[in-house]
């Protein structure tokens, strides 16, 4: 079972993602970080296979954390989950920084699980 870390400042989005992940037999949620800095720490302590991370967060944002994670940990696969996915520059920047995919908000369980399974 693959371990997933959820990173989002929004409690409601984190709840939605944790629910989708925990109801699937393929994945388990190993925690919830509220910003990029927490995500980097929890990547070290929880050693997830996948990180689902928001872009727009107070403190360290998702793209900054992605930049750090892609240097520090070549194994972890990062998927950005964001309402800004449709902004072409942001989407391209995320892919260039090493994100494996971008899930747009609002999302549904089927899309999230399909993208996670394809990683």
């Amino acid at each position: 079972m693959k371990k997933v870390l959820v990173v989002d400042d929004s409690l409601s989005v984190a709840r939605q993602l944790e629910k989708i992940i925990s109801e699937s037999s393929d994945f388990t949620c190993v925690g919830h970080a509220k910003n990029g800095a927490e995500a980097i720490k929890m990547n070290h302590t929880e050693n997830p296979d996948i990180i689902c991370m928001d872009m727009n967060m107070p403190g360290m944002d998702g793209l900054t954390a992605l930049r750090t994670l892609s240097v520090m940990d070549k194994e972890v696969k990062v998927v950005m989950v964001t309402s800004l996915g449709g902004v072409g520059d942001k989407f391209t920047e995320a892919l260039r920084l090493g994100a494996k995919n971008v899930i747009s908000k609002p999302f549904d369980a089927e899309t999230v699980l399909r993208i996670l399974r394809e990683l």
Partner: peptide
Amino acid sequence: MAVKFFGQFLVERGIVTSEALLGAIN
């Protein structure tokens, strides 16, 4: 279910890979 650009639509649906899209953007 959101405003997207065409490349994102294709990657999200698994029609093209993110690597192929980056190649096309380059």
